[in-house]
Design a protein around this nucleic acid. Structure first.
Lengths: 247, 247
DNA sequence: TGTACATCAGTGAACGCGCGTTCACTGATGTAC
DNA sequence: TGTACATCAGTGAACGCGCGTTCACTGATGTAC
C-alpha cells in the first residue's frame, strides 16, 4: 500500500512545509503557555483568552490551532503523560535490565521527582478530575498507561528471571471475581507473573502514587515529615517486600 | 471564673435565641447548598452568587453569613472532614476495642465508602489543592487529622496488646533523619508502637488513600477492574500484613 | 406592659472584571498552470 | 518564470454570560427602660 505511492508524494508527506513547521511551533507554544497557566492558576481556571494574551495574539486566533478549551486540556494531558513517561523510561533504562529492584526504585523516584517539579501537571493527571471535562480515551489511554505498564513489566521480568518471590503473595487468598480481572490483564499484557503477585503489583502502584500525592498535595502537613526523601526511600523498600522483589 | 457569673447570664449564653437559631440554620443551608454545587461543578467553580440563588436570596445577602468565597470553602472543608471522621468513628466503634484488624479494616472501608458517596467532598479534602485557596490551619488541622490519628491509635493499641508483629518492621532499616520525625510523632501522640512500625503505619495510611483516590478519580480505567470491592478488601489484607497486624 | 432605640436580615443597583465562542474581514503565504 | 487563485493566520468587534464584592437602603425583630 504505502510502497505503491509515488516517491514524490512520499516526500511531500515526510518533509514539513515552512507553514507546517510554523504551525507546529505555534501549537507547541500554546501547550507551553498552557502549562505555565496550569501551574499558576490550576486546570479549572485555564483560559484560552489568557493563553492568547501570552502568545501575543488576539483571543480568536488560537481557535485556528485548538478547537476549544477542552482540546487544550487534552493536549496538556497528553503532554504531561509523555513527559512523565519519557523521564521514567530514561531512569529505568539507565540501569541494567537485570537490576529489577533498582529499576523499580528508579521508576518510582523518577515519577516522584517529576511530580514535585511539575505539581500542576501532576494534579491534572492524577488529582481530582476537572469538572465538566472528560478525557478522550482514544487519545489519552496509551500515554496514560506508560508508567504502570512499565512497572508491571519490571515485575514480570523479575518473575521470569526467578527474582520475584511469589511465595509472599500466597499469604492472601484472591477471590474468584478479582482473579478474573487479573487474568484479563495477564492475557492482555502477555504476563507470566502469577495473579497474586500481579495484584500486589497493582497495590504497589497505587501506593507509590498515593505517597506522591500526599506529598505533592500537602497532606502530610508542613512540619510532620522533614526527611521526605528518606521517607519515600523507606516506603519503596517496604513496597519492594510487598511484591516480593529481592534486592 | 465561669461559676462566678450570675445564673441569668449563664442561661443567656447557653440557650440560643430564635435569631441565633435562624442564623445557624441559614449557615447550615449555605453549607448544604455549597456541597451540592461542589458535587456538580467542582471546588474551583464554587460561587457565592450561585449559592445565593439556590438559597432564594439576593447575592449580597450571603455576605451576612460568610465573609467571602474562601470562607465558604473552609466551612465545606471542615464539614467534609467531620462527616468523614464521624462515619469512620462510628464504623470503628461498632467493633470491640480488641478487634484491631477488624477496626483497621472498618476504618478503611468507611473512608472508601464515604469517598465513593461524596466524590466532590473527597476531592476537596484529598485531591488537588484549590488554586488560590490556602486552608487556615488553625481551623482545619484538628478535623483534618481525625482519621489518621484514629488509625495510628488502632495500631498503637494493637502493639500494646501484643497483637502487632513488630518483627516484620525490622526487615527495613530506618535512617537517622527519618527516625527523628517519627520520634516526634511518637512523643506528640503518646505512642508505644516502635518507630519502624509507625513508619509502616504511615505507608498503610497513604496506601489506603492512594487506592481510594485511584478509584474515585477514575485512574483505574473503566473496565480494568470490575471487582472493586474485592480488590480493595484484598489490598487491605496485604496492608494488614505490611504493618504486622494479625487477624 | 408599652415605647424608643439598636440590631440584624435582606434588597437592589452598581463597580469592573474575565470568560468562550462566532463572524466577516484583511493580508500574507503558498500552489497550479 | 509569472500570474491567478486558493489557502491560511491573524484581526477586531460583538454576543451573552457569570463572577466577587461594596454600599446605601428598608423593614422586621429583639432589647432596655
Amino acid at each position: 500500500m504505502t510502497s505503491a505511492q509515488p516517491a514524490a508524494a512520499k516526500t511531500k508527506e515526510k518533509l514539513p512545509t515552512p507553514r507546517e513547521r510554523a504551525r507546529a511551533r505555534t501549537i507547541a507554544d500554546i501547550v507551553r503557555i498552557g502549562r505555565e497557566h496550569l501551574a499558576l492558576h490550576g486546570a479549572a481556571a485555564l483560559s484560552l483568552r489568557a493563553v492568547a494574551r501570552d502568545l501575543g495574539v488576539v483571543s480568536s486566533a488560537v481557535y485556528r490551532y485548538v478547537e476549544n478549551r477542552d482540546e487544550l486540556l487534552t493536549l496538556l494531558l497528553i503532554d504531561g503523560y509523555n513527559e512523565l513517561g519519557d523521564e521514567v523510561d530514561a531512569a529505568v533504562d539507565a540501569l541494567p535490565a537485570g537490576d529489577f529492584a533498582g529499576r523499580f526504585r528508579a521508576l518510582a523516584k523518577a515519577a516522584r521527582a517529576w511530580a514535585i517539579r511539575e505539581p500542576a501537571s501532576y494534579a491534572l493527571l492524577f488529582g481530582s478530575p476537572v469538572p465538566g471535562y472528560q478525557a478522550p480515551g482514544e487519545r489519552t489511554t496509551v500515554p496514560g498507561t506508560r508508567v504502570i505498564y512499565r512497572m508491571v513489566n519490571i515485575f514480570d521480568a523479575a518473575y521470569r528471571a526467578g527474582a520475584l518471590d511469589a511465595a509472599v503473595s500466597s499469604a492472601v487468598v484472591i477471590p474468584e471475581k478479582l482473579a478474573k480481572d487479573l487474568a484479563s490483564i495477564r492475557t492482555e499484557m502477555n504476563l507470566a507473573v502469577p495473579e497474586a503477585s500481579l495484584a500486589r503489583g497493582v497495590l504497589v502502584w497505587t501506593s507509590v502514587f498515593g505517597a506522591v500525592s500526599f506529598e505533592v498535595f500537602g497532606q502530610y502537613g508542613a512540619d510532620t515529615f522533614k526527611a521526605r526523601d528518606e521517607l519515600f526511600e523507606h516506603q519503596l523498600s517496604v513496597l519492594q517486600g510487598v511484591v516480593g522483589l529481592q534486592g
